[in-house]
Design a binder for these strands. Structure first.
Lengths: 133, 133
DNA sequence: ATCCCTGCAAAGAGTTTGCAAGTAA
DNA sequence: TTACTTGCAAACTCTTTGCAGGGAT
């Protein structure tokens, strides 16, 4: 596994350059400009390989397809459960203590990869209020 | 919206009774024992309604379909990105400070609903080591 | 020479939706 | 009687896979 291919390189470049948490579909639309012959299955296959290699992060959005993010700098995400919007979030979680509590509670060590906060954003909250009135 | 139906009641009961974070499919398999005529679309429809009402939580697993959890007591989840296993996790995140930082960084208030920790569990970690040898 | 890679098309998993009929308020 | 709900089947979205050929090492 892991031979060079210009397609994989182009996919990684696109994810590096576009910090918008693109979906596989969006990555395909962007990469096709550099490699017009590329197929969607190549995009999916390489996204999975890059994820396995730890070069990109997979974000389970609340709505719609998975999204991807270049693993350049450790950060968290805040995701709105109503509209699916994803925000980057820098926060110093106390991973040491989290890990300690996790071992206490589930009896296993966990390698923490990333922390996601799901919630409701201001916009969606105010939309709901209007509905309820 | 929100008329009584025995199907919806049975679905909520099943989710309350089965604290295994069942998938929609698993909920269907369980609820069919109580309501043998129920259809899968009724299960999907009511899961979505119960989620909208805040009676159940939706967990975006790393692998496979979404899973559901009764919103009985506030708790977090730790999810293994390799095997998809979900662990309940009680932890006192500093939501006040998280919210403050979130407003600073994204300029919006977020109603925090739940926090999910994605990582690699011990079992999957050791499996990988064997592979690498 | 071997193994990994690609594009294409088909298949697969998970979920939603249109419809006609049934049930609750 | 009006609005919500159901079961069924079909449609839909997202992702994976089998295959035959091409490229990397």
């Amino acid at each position: 596994m892991n031979n060079y291919s210009k397609q994989r390189e182009a996919i990684l470049e696109v994810i590096k350059e576009n910090l918008i948490h693109p979906t596989a579909e969006e990555i395909y639309e962007l990469v096709i400009k550099k490699e017009p012959q590329i197929s969607k299955s190549t995009v999916y296959r390489n996204i999975n390989i890059l994820f396995e290699l730890g070069e990109i992060k997979k974000i389970k959005s609340a709505i719609g397809p998975d999204r991807y993010d270049y693993s350049y700098k450790k950060h968290s995400h805040i995701i709105c459960e109503k509209c699916g919007q994803i925000f980057d979030f820098d926060y110093n979680f106390d991973n040491k203590n989290i890990l300690k509590k996790a071992i206490e509670q589930i009896g296993k060590k966990i390698d923490i990869d990333n922390i996601v906060i799901y919630g409701i954003c201001e916009n969606c909250k105010s939309k709901n209020k209007i509905k309820e009135e």
